[in-house]
Design a binder for these strands. Structure first.
Lengths: 377, 377
DNA sequence: TTGAAAGCGCTAACAC
DNA sequence: GTGTTAGCGCTTTCAA
């Protein structure tokens, strides 16, 4: 064949032999230098590097992978949505992966594809990866099937431990964050808190719901029926219309900010003021959360931290197959209190404390400038 | 049968020779089958496929790439933000790439990294890719440097043609969309339209600005000074405080929805009503745009269409190096009219049609305007 | 329509 | 510290 086709212009890209020749060393020595192996004299190393630079040499990864059996690639399975949470997580994963010197291979699960996550994992395995990250998985009932084929370590972000030989889990702090959000509302004096949940196939949606529920139960509060949305503002809006009709509803914890925003709009349109009549807490802290009306109290997810630690543990497992996996740490909880939460209205029956107004609701104090105060600062 | 069958184990995955042996054909024939080459009898093909299935054979991509010089990978350079626009574009790209049978390699440009896009492209080239997608590039002054190293086809999304030997551009309809947004405002009766631009290193920000400007000039309207934001709601908020002080400011076109939302909040806090006093148009149609207060009139970007067509053209160029590149089509313009735009207020000087509120921000221009026109309140 | 031989550019053992 | 010798699993001639 034509030699390293696709690379250099005419006669092919330079190979390590070429570098070796120019530097006056053996090809293996060039390999040593480029793999940072020990036992190379400083002088030789320098000469090799110079020769490589002069030739514009780049290591051929296909050959490297073939010879070593390791691709130095990590594959990530995503849901293929531009939702803030998943997208942020991917960005965090990319950064973390790159820091470790691995390359990232991305595959979306096609919506409505029966193969689902299994299909995506398969295609990753086909391409060849040393490890796999599954981000915010949904439960498509294929856990068992998957486990069989997974002969590489897997990191599952935002889900409980996974039935695979070498599986890690990370970012399972959603329940804790949900608890904090719920407690914040109770601390303000609300009798109980309603929950606008995410789609229940999502582990992260279930986690948040469990966190919410556990607090209510622990504090012996009534547990209102859960309303399930689909993460979208539209579904939050629909939920808001339902909730507006519920008596004594004074606080809602929404499983993400988009739904919270739709919810607030529906409540406002129904004549309920946020936060005077109803308090709302979101989840994610999306960029606009501080600037909607009213600025949204929400829980910020530490995507970067979670991704970074997760990848670090994954790479450790890849490179030390025998060793014990690194332990996971609890991600920090960051409740950002803004203007969408307040004490509940006085004990009058609904329809009463409420003001009629033509203004956009919750046009309140100056907090809006910096977007609110974080529990962590 | 000596090897392979188990595959999970340590002794290695089945190779094409194993399949060949089991099927009773030569290894080359197996290769032919898996590459869909002609000249394989239906019978042999079937036998090979059966043997492969039995062994759980998967083609080794490293070996394939090494031997063929083609990686069947497309690399994408992104900005590493979870901004809705870029994130959506990436998702579209992933989908499109997968449809073509290529794999996706993703690299972010590290923020603040002096190497910028150039560094990201380099690392992609290092990894080995058959083509590169640069999404929403920013101008880091490295065009020239880049061009030298780019020996594979490049698709630039959301930017003008790029100085590289085999470059394609796509999604350059932003100016047209910006024009539509601006015209919408003028059609409503506004004398002119202010512009809250994105960071000017972004080509897409410049495109939108040019679209806006061209309409104003064409219709002989005053061209107000541009305010530059950083895409964030926070910067939109800051811009809003400035704009609230400007006389006769009745319409603003913001270069994205996040900024538009921050802007609306600042205007509202300053006592200006949207859309009664000031109309605002955003850009992107982010998921919450329909649910903020007021629901945002905005321009929807057809990310999927742009990504799909772009990738199709890129792959064509990869696979037909000599042929002319496929032509680009104009993406559709989709103005979504909601409640943030309306005809301008009646012709009274500012300070007058407007309600006084209790907000302190009125202080800023309270003396010169409000004080003098008390008759109106 | 099929097969045999010869690498692709690198890493892995083991010598020196 | 450095070099030698074999492959990794596939695609590519070229021959049959």
């Amino acid at each position: 064949m034509a030699r390293g086709a696709g690379r250099g212009g005419s006669s092919g890209a330079p190979r390590s032999v070429d570098v070796a020749q120019l530097a006056g060393v053996s090809q293996k020595t060039v390999s040593r230098v480029f793999n940072n192996e020990p036992y190379v004299s400083a002088d030789v190393r320098r000469r090799v590097l110079e020769a490589a630079a002069e030739l514009g040499y780049r290591l051929n990864n296909a050959a490297r992978a073939l010879a070593s059996g390791r691709t130095r690639h990590i594959g990530v399975v995503t849901l293929g949505t531009a939702l803030y949470g998943p997208a942020s997580l991917i960005m965090g994963v990319e950064r973390a992966v790159r820091d470790t010197g691995y390359a990232l291979r991305v595959v979306n699960t096609v919506e409505g594809d029966p193969a689902g996550i299994g299909g995506a994992v398969d295609s990753l395995l086909d391409q060849g990866v040393d490890g796999i990250v599954i981000s915010e998985p949904i439960d498509d009932g294929q856990d068992g099937v998957l486990a069989d084929r997974l002969d590489v370590p897997v990191l599952v972000l935002g889900a409980p431990p996974f039935p695979a030989p070498r599986a890690l889990a990370a970012g399972v702090g959603a329940d804790l964050m949900a608890q904090t959000a719920t407690e914040h509302l109770l601390d303000l004096g609300h009798q109980t808190v309603h929950h606008l949940a995410g789609p229940q196939q999502w582990y992260s949606a279930r986690d948040r719901m469990e966190g919410w529920r556990s607090v209510l139960i622990e504090k012996s509060r009534a547990v209102p029926p859960v309303i399930e949305g689909d993460w979208s503002a539209a579904s939050g809006y629909a939920a808001g219309r339902e909730l507006a009709a519920v008596d004594d509803m004074t606080a809602v914890f929404a499983a993400n900010d988009d739904m919270a925003i739709g919810l607030v709009r529906a409540l406002t349109e129904a004549g309920l003021r946020v936060p005077e009549d109803v308090s709302v807490v979101g989840f994610d802290d999306i960029p606009v959360a501080a600037y909607v009306t009213p600025p949204l109290t929400t829980v910020r997810q530490p995507f970067d931290v979670v991704a970074q630690e997760g990848i670090k543990r994954l790479v450790h497992t890849i490179e030390n197959p025998q060793a014990d996996p690194l332990p996971a740490s609890e991600p920090p909880v960051d409740l950002v209190v803004r203007a969408s939460t307040a004490p509940p209205p006085l004990q009058t029956p609904r329809g009463r404390g409420r003001r009629t107004t033509s203004r956009p609701s919750g046009d309140r104090h100056g907090q809006s400038l910096d977007g609110g105060s974080s529990a962590h600062d």
